[in-house]
């Protein structure tokens, strides 16, 4: 279990995070939902260990890891732009970490991951030859080879379009379930957050507004902001789509 206690962070006297307090259960998918400037990326960086909070503590499985360095926390991240290494092919990227820690995954486990993410026929491809979805899956595989204790995903779907988006969503869910992997996702898209996660944390101005299951957020928004900006957006989207299909079908759906 990951617990954050009373985390605060300021940059140049601007308060970015205020009294952030929450916990994530093992194997859960949690989305941190907020617009740009809400503090969500700072929060992600604090969990990962890139930056230190000004005050507050972070516990993982009961141990205080606030002062533990990024590489010793054992978490891992897939960046929004994937940060794949272009001088290596897809396979070279996937097994990158094995050069440093040869025993972390067995060859069978690596093969299993490649199968799971459907990358078998792309292994010898150059990074530039891969589509957005393939890049995302290579980056996921590269990270999963390291067997992270927590998987962090920074806007994992924002660079993808349409159908690919849905298939990557399924893959993320499948991975979390199969490996019982705690997954924390940062996103600005309410639809993404609510349809992908077990729990959603809505953050604005550095403060957590609501942290609950998607159904609770829909049915019992805690705050005007949640109603105005999150639910309203979804409703407009729903109405537009329903209008497209005609109102008869809308009732059926």
């Amino acid at each position: 279990m990951l617990e954050l206690k009373n985390i605060e962070k300021s940059f140049d006297n601007v308060n970015v995070l205020n009294h952030v307090d929450f916990s994530v259960e093992d194997g859960e998918i949690v989305s941190i939902l907020g617009s740009s400037g809400s503090g969500k990326t700072t929060l992600l960086n604090i969990i990962l260990g890139i930056i230190q909070p000004d005050c507050g503590e972070i516990y993982f499985d009961g141990h205080d890891i606030t002062e533990v360095s990024m590489e010793n926390r054992g978490f891992n991240i897939v960046f929004q732009d994937y940060a794949l290494f272009p001088n290596l092919n897809a396979y070279g990227n996937i097994v990158y970490g094995l050069k440093n820690k040869p025993d972390i995954s067995t060859p069978e486990e690596v093969q299993e991951l490649i199968e799971l993410l459907g990358l078998k026929e792309h292994l010898n491809k150059n990074i530039e030859q891969l589509s957005g979805g393939q890049k995302q899956r290579v980056a996921l595989a590269r990270t999963l080879v390291m067997k992270p204790k927590i998987l962090l995903l920074d806007e994992p779907l924002s660079a993808l379009d349409g159908v690919i988006k849905e298939s990557i969503k399924d893959k993320i869910k499948q991975i979390a379930k199969e490996y019982h992997l705690t997954t924390i996702i940062v996103t600005h898209d309410p639809e993404e957050a609510l349809s992908l996660s077990d729990k959603v944390m809505i953050i604005n101005g550095g403060t957590i507004l609501q942290y609950a299951k998607p159904s609770e957020i829909i049915n019992a928004p805690s705050d005007d902001f949640v109603t105005e900006f999150i639910l309203r957006q979804l409703e407009i989207k729903r109405n537009n789509i329903l209008a497209l299909f005609g109102s008869d079908k809308a009732v059926v759906v």
Binding site: M70, E71, F75, I77, F79, D81, A83, G97, N100, K101
Partner: peptide, 12 residues
């Protein structure tokens, strides 16, 4: 890409 160092560091 600005994320390379962090990514590689997480890979040891």
């Amino acid at each position: 890409n600005a994320g390379w160092e962090t990514t590689a560091r997480l890979m040891g």
